[in-house]
Amino acid sequence: MATVQQLSTKHVLGIKYLSESDIRLIFETAKSFKEVLNRPIKKVPSLRDVTVANLFFENSTRTRISFELAEKRLSADIVNFSASSSSVKKGETLLDTVNNILSMKVDMVVMRHPAPGAHHFLAQHIDANIINAGDGTHEHPTQALLDAFSMEEAVGELAGRKVAIFGDILHSRVALSNIFCLNKLGAKVRVCGPPTLIPKHIAELGVEVSHDLKDSLRWCDIANVLRIQLERQDISYFSSLREYAQYFGINKPLLDSLDKPIVIMHPGPINRGVEITSDVADSEHSIILQQVENGVAVRMAVLYLLAAKR
């Protein structure tokens, strides 16, 4: 799959720093890789002799596995590092940790970190290509890319389409990256959730704000339902899960009351019965598992395109 096009950046730190044509190029590349993934032999040699370090300073299961699979399908050499088993607990700085790993000749870094901007900080001080696999409440670009890629698969071109993002917008890097990505692709975006979970200035990013679940479901073509980030809430932003589920949870009767089917998405892991009920998550309108499948193809595309910049 030879391509003469290249990304405009050396790192993927966030959707904010990608152009629309970068996003298009990633999607085109991901399409080819998705086709590869459905072959009997799912492996290509594109990243042979490239070493990728997966640095996870915050817990992750699906994103880490998705990246690892993407790297393996591209024949990269991989080293894995997670904070729980590391020297970070002994007080080593991020820069020292990463420099130690890089001195073992690592070409690319896939990193998840709890601090917004951690990848920018690293990019100023190290030479490897950096892919942001989530930095606190800032960005999670590959999630937004795989979301938009999956949306296009489901409904075609996103320009003019209406996408509503439901739930905890305040603590969500997925929401922010989704907003940046969908804005670049011309979709209309609305966020909906309890007022304490909506950032005060979010409307300045060019999105609509609503606290009315039913009205927002009626409005949208696609509902991207976010996980309630209980682990990232240091103080109470809503009173109880019971009340949340009752007023902001999406259930089957609610969807049946709409005059049109809408596409249901969720970045996982799902709190079943809280932000979304099982019958909705498992319904024919849900593309939650396609998102997971596309995640590998999109991450392969990002890795491949960045490796080409080396």
């Binding site: 890097r173 200035h201 979010i202 300045e204």
Partner: peptide, 12 residues
């Protein structure tokens, strides 16, 4: 807390 903090995902 404002536009910039929102785009950076930073607590304001």
């Amino acid at each position: 807390e404002g536009y910039t903090s929102t785009t950076l995902g930073m607590k304001g």
